[in-house]
């Protein structure tokens, strides 16, 4: 799959299965793929946490730096400006404040590396994405999302997401089930909830206990969005076989990127099932 054509002119969130799943490395690869294109897209990128710092704040692991190239738009915290070696012009200060200062939008005027730090609240992310696409003319927006924070994807209209997962042999089955569940949830129809006596709305989380409370005659079950589903893959499949689930908000998986450790691509693909579409899966783009 060509990453560039998959993400170009879209708002794409990169969501990790866990800390250190390889999100920021994938972000760098995505940015480089876009930069290598003949027709340059007006590129903007941001984070919903801290990325590009030298060490992971939580685990202390060395972290990849984020490179920024001339002409690109970068949203980050004001504190990151002191340590960047990139040249920049300040375009805007957003109302969102992070623990590391005000959120600013800069245009890169000289290549360099930068730490990207962004707000976590969905409302702020949504406001910034709208401003980037509106007044500042960004065509492609890449958001380095926080680990396992899928709700952020719903904060930007029409956004899609890339799921980056770390697959170790000993945990391959659970990683496959998690990815498979995300894929199946992303296929649930979304939009206006149908009305009628056979429609039942789940308020809040969809759990195994709540499924037991659904009236017998129910055909369609409405849930706010996929982040409210707290079921295992097996429970979800049983639920989806019995009812027609619908979500209020859409949740579109662009593809998943699996970073494999001690497991072959074919073996992991087998765990995902024969019907898992090949265009929804890429393997570590750094692996030869």
């Amino acid at each position: 799959m060509e990453i560039k054509s998959a993400v170009e002119n879209k708002t794409v969130f990169i969501v990790g299965s866990e800390k250190n799943a390889g999100k920021t490395t994938f972000l760098n690869f995505t940015l480089d793929s876009l930069r290598g294109a003949k027709r340059k897209t007006r590129l903007a990128f941001m984070s919903t946490g801290v990325d590009g710092e030298k060490e992971d704040f939580v685990f202390g692991n060395p972290k990849p730096r984020v490179a920024a190239k001339k002409g690109e738009l970068v949203v980050t915290a004001q504190s990151a400006l002191a340590s960047t070696d990139a040249g920049y012009e300040l375009l805007e200060i957003f109302p969102a404040k992070t623990v590391l200062g005000r959120t600013v939008l800069i245009k890169i005027v000289r290549d360099g590396n930068i730490e990207i730090i962004g707000p976590q609240s969905n409302a702020h992310i949504s406001g910034i994405v709208s401003a980037l696409r509106g007044g500042f003319g960004a065509e492609t927006i890449i958001v380095d999302g926080a680990a396992s924070r899928f709700t952020q994807v719903a904060s930007a209209d029409g956004a899609e997401f890339i799921y980056v997962t770390r697959v170790e042999k000993c945990r391959a089955q659970s990683a496959a089930e998690a990815l498979r569940l995300i894929y199946e949830l992303s296929r649930v129809p979304a939009g206006k909830t149908p009305r009628g006596k056979n429609v039942f709305r789940i308020e809040g989380a969809l759990t195994a206990d709540k499924i037991r409370l659904i009236p017998k005659e129910t055909e369609t079950v409405a849930v706010e969005d996929c982040t409210k589903v707290f079921l295992s893959l097996a429970q979800w499949r049983k639920f989806a076989a019995r009812y027609n689930p619908v979500f209020d908000k859409s949740f579109r998986l662009l593809f998943a990127s699996a970073n494999l450790y001690d497991i072959a691509a074919g073996e992991f693909a087998k765990l995902l099932g024969a019907d898992f579409p090949p265009d929804k899966l890429v393997f570590n783009p750094y692996a030869l």
């Binding site: 490395t25 760098n28 690869f29 480089d32 793929s33 290598g36 990849p64 570590n284 783009p285 750094y286 692996a287 030869l288």
Partner: peptide
């Protein structure tokens, strides 16, 4: 080994 769009590569140990 093509590093033009990659900061590093993951390769087979034998290679």
């Amino acid at each position: 080994l093509d590093f033009s769009a990659r900061e590093f590569l993951v390769i087979d140990e034998t290679r």
